[in-house]
Amino acid sequence: MSTVRTVLGDVLPQDLGVCNAHDHLFLSSPQLPGQELREASAARAELSAFRAEGGGSVVQWTPYGMGRRAADLPLLARDTGVHVIAATGLHQAVHYTPELLRRLRGKLTDVFVSELTTSIGTSGVRAGLIKVAGGFHALDAHTRWTMTAAAEAHHATGAPITVHLELGTGALDVLDLLCGELGVAPQSVVLGHLNRSPDLTVHRQAAEAGAYLAFDGPSRAHHATDWRMPDAVRALADAGFGDRLLLGGDTTTAAARSVDGGPGMPYLLRRVRPRLELALGKDLVEHILTANPGRAFAVDWR
């Protein structure tokens, strides 16, 4: 039976409710100095605000070594009534020290499998997905290393693989590597940030390949992508790919949280949902927010 692995245990896909398919409760990176997501009280407030808008679940894409605070996630999920899914995986090399990356050489697959099947550290929390990242229109050696380990962990466990696409680029190269060379089923791959590169032809090709396509988070710099996003989603839906679409918030800095004056997690349901309902209709948007995440993140765990 397929289940979604949350921080409180495995649940049926239909129990997720309205799902924010890509966001962050905790996140630290040298690329975002002074903007770390570290405060549990702020994470709780953000989850509660999302819940107040009708949210039922959040998929946290924060991977290994970036301040996941996995041990805090079960209490936050219980306190707010929101299902939380945690991630293993590895981001781009710039987010880590060279020393940490050297320590992981030769053992990355084992780390991923352990965090999916046993525990993230001593937290007792098991990850429900593997998050990796591509580069800007390219796949460098670090990407190939991490994606190879992700594919091996996927084959060992069945876990879905989510992919940060840098500025939304490189989707087809990622699918060539993961699904072509490494044998991952396309329906086990979620491509993130496609809203940041509104190339409708690439979107269509990625959907035809069978991957899930995530449109996740308002732009911080390229605002034209925000108003193009509904058209991109509608084009995919009109082409028959409404069942491959996911929506998320991707809150990556403290200033972006709603409790600090930013859009935060509630923005997905307060602003994005009604805008998409105008373009797609309420029934399809509801399907994208509920049924699609259940399928994308549910696994017959091995």
Results as ranks from 00 to 15, higher is better:
T62D: 04
W145V: 11
L268M: 15
L8F: 00
L37I: 08
A149N: 11
A256G: 15
R68L: 15
D199C: 09
W145S: 13
L289F: 02
V163P: 07
D243W: 01
S41I: 07
E277W: 00
R78A: 14
E286S: 14
A207P: 07
D199L: 06
L247V: 08
P198V: 08
P98C: 08
T148Y: 01
V113H: 07
V84D: 07
T109K: 13
E166P: 02
H164A: 10
T225I: 09
W301T: 13
P198G: 06
P33W: 05
L37D: 10
V189W: 03
P33R: 08
H95W: 07
R273E: 15
K131G: 12
P263S: 09
R38T: 15
R244D: 03
F50S: 11
R204C: 05
E115D: 15
A298V: 07
F215Q: 08
T225F: 01
A43Y: 04
R196L: 14
G81H: 04
G261K: 09
D79M: 06
Y96K: 07
A149L: 10
L90I: 12
F50T: 10
V189S: 12
G55P: 10
G264C: 08
G67Q: 06
G217L: 05
L104D: 11
G192P: 03
V125N: 11
R295T: 14
I161Q: 10
T253Q: 14
G170V: 04
S114P: 02
T3F: 06
A45K: 11
D23H: 01
D243M: 04
N195M: 05
D173C: 01
A298S: 15
G54I: 04
L194Y: 04
V163G: 11
T201S: 12
R5T: 13
Q14Y: 03
L175Q: 08
D79N: 10
S197K: 12
E39V: 06
T251V: 15
T201F: 02
A291L: 12
G240V: 00
P266F: 03
C179Q: 05
M147G: 10
S188K: 13
S123L: 10
P98R: 04
E286G: 14
V11C: 06
R44G: 08
T109C: 14
R302F: 02
G168L: 08
R103Y: 03
L108A: 10
S2R: 14
M147R: 04
V58E: 07
H164Q: 11
